[in-house]
Amino acid sequence: MHHEYIDKYSRLDSVVHKIDSRTKMILSFLLILIITAFNNFYPVLIIMPLIVIAILLSKVPVMFFLRRIAICLPFLLFLFFLPFSKAVLLFSKSASSITIITLLMSTTTFSGFLEALKFFKTPKIFILMLSFFYRYLFLFIDNIHRMRHACDSRCFSKKQSFKPATVSGMIGNLVVRSYEQSERVYLAMLARGYNDSG
């Protein structure tokens, strides 16, 4: 099955990719803190050109970033409720933060990211949950795809396969299957000596 991975571009070879993941993580969080803490445009204007240079150096396609930034387009709706400059400030802050996080995630492999979290003494359970999330999110998407295929192959039109009863049945099935899978995963972990306090 094909879908986009969070760290899709993380295995490219560039100067930015070579920087230690811990350094990148600290830098990213510091920059986001600075951008969000001040109530004016200066931090964005100073930091973003540097980020753009880093993006160009990283060889990650610019379109990838633009698509990610599109996530914060709804913030532009505030134009209707807030004074113009405030709404633009809100948008630029969120867009910059997303760009920085995207740059961090697309130049660091997910395992590198987890390693860095481990180094900063993040609680073990939190790291385990993140690694589960990364692993099983895609399995979950695969399940949806497979179910859709199986459903579409027995329906003659899109209208039939999008009936509320069909969709709700699928969601129910997915929830039950995921729940059961989580039980089986936990058993498999126990079988390899995992204990809750570990």
Binding site: F110, L114, R135, Y136, Q181, R184, V185, L187, A188, A191
Partner: peptide, 11 residues
């Protein structure tokens, strides 16, 4: 286990 996806959960 029968289904490897139940066993392999790391990055």
């Amino acid at each position: 286990f029968q289904n490897p996806d139940d066993m392999l959960f790391s990055a």
